[in-house]
């Protein structure tokens, strides 16, 4: 059974292709956009920068080869979620095209010129004011999704995009799960091992608070440059998460009490005790947030590095 928008039964390939065609716009995408350069690649495909032939703008296109997608029905999820959910902290969906001859799917999104948060966390040092600002923006996006009973399930710095003016947006909704109500749960292990919550790695039923745990791991990225256990194999990392629970924070004594408490509230192993987005949006740590424009020097430095 797959986790998709609604609880989808096992769709046949034809049904999936028909679903994608229904969601896609007509016309030939390769004649409407000029591909400029490759921006990156991930599990589901490559992302390229492109220019519409009839407009002076820049877009990002995620190109997915339909023949080697582990879970094609998740592509339908991604498009449905991005089409329906509009929020200032969620990457804007523009269009999508189904290229039957190449068996490819193109998802056209807004382009953020600052790149992924990963480059900033690995190449620069963020202060607590900047960490608070990024955390607040991500929490606003998560609050919006959770309110609609949707879990992201893959929160990490790679899926947080930045604009040169400091805008912060969440992306990559291919692994979203729709819960059928507040108490509904999921069990499929989805996400990236180093960011997974204990209840996910131990294959228990989980809910929206898995995103809160991953947010906590992302804050560790902003502090230390990478998530805990990244020097280990994914399997060992999963074992450590399942057995150790809350990871150690290096130089914890240097952190402010507000940040320490904020982290503790995110990285609480017991799901019922773990904070939700509403509580964290009221947390004292976010009052330390500096203006988003202070991210610009970090983005420039990361690009140069």
């Amino acid at each position: 059974v797959t986790d998709g928008m609604a609880k989808k039964k096992n769709l046949t390939d034809d049904e999936i292709h028909a679903g994608l065609q229904r969601l896609a716009s007509p016309g030939d995408a390769s004649s409407k956009y000029q591909i400029q350069k490759k921006l990156g690649s991930g599990a589901s495909g490559n992302v390229c920068m492109a220019k519409p032939v009839d407009a002076d703008a820049v877009v990002a296109i995620k190109m997915m080869d339909l023949n080697n997608q582990p879970k094609k029905e998740l592509l339908i999820t991604e498009i449905e979620v991005m089409k329906d959910y509009k929020h200032p902290n969620i990457v804007n969906f523009l269009d999508c095209y189904y290229l039957s001859e190449k068996q490819e799917l193109w998802v056209v999104m807004e382009y953020l010129d600052g790149g992924a948060l990963t480059d900033v966390v690995t190449e620069t040092i963020m202060n607590e004011g900047q960490i608070a600002a990024v955390s607040r923006e991500c929490l606003q996006a998560l609050d919006y999704l959770h309110e609609k009973h949707c879990i992201h399930r893959d929160i990490k710095s790679d899926n947080v995009l930045l604009g040169m003016n400091g805008t912060v947006k969440l992306t990559d909704f291919g692994f979203c799960a729709q819960l059928s109500g507040d108490s509904a749960k999921r069990q499929t292990m989805v996400g990236t091992p180093y960011w997974m919550a204990p209840e996910v790695v131990s294959r228990k039923h989980y809910g929206k608070k898995v995103d809160i745990w991953s947010m906590g791991i992302m804050i560790i990225e902003m502090l230390e440059g990478e998530p805990p256990y990244l020097n280990e194999t994914p399997l060992k990392a999963i074992y450590r998460i399942a057995t150790k629970g809350k990871p150690d924070i290096k130089n914890a004594e240097k952190l402010s009490p507000e940040l320490k408490d904020f982290l503790d509230r995110c990285l609480e192993v017991e799901v019922e005790k773990r904070a939700d987005t509403q509580e964290l949006l009221q947390h004292k740590f976010l009052t330390k947030a500096r203006p988003l424009t202070t991210l610009r020097p970090l983005i420039v430095a990361a690009k140069q590095a």
């Binding site: 991930g42 599990a43 589901s44 582990p70 879970k71 998740l74 893959d154 990490k156 790679d158 990559d172 291919g174 692994f175 499929t188 292990m189 989805v190 996400g191 990236t192 091992p193 180093y194 990244l230 194999t233 994914p234 399997l235």
Partner: peptide, 19 residues
Amino acid sequence: KKRFQRKKRYTIVGSAYWM
């Protein structure tokens, strides 16, 4: 080694090859 490092950050659905 670089390719394995990059693959560590890939998203998994259900179970991965190393499980």
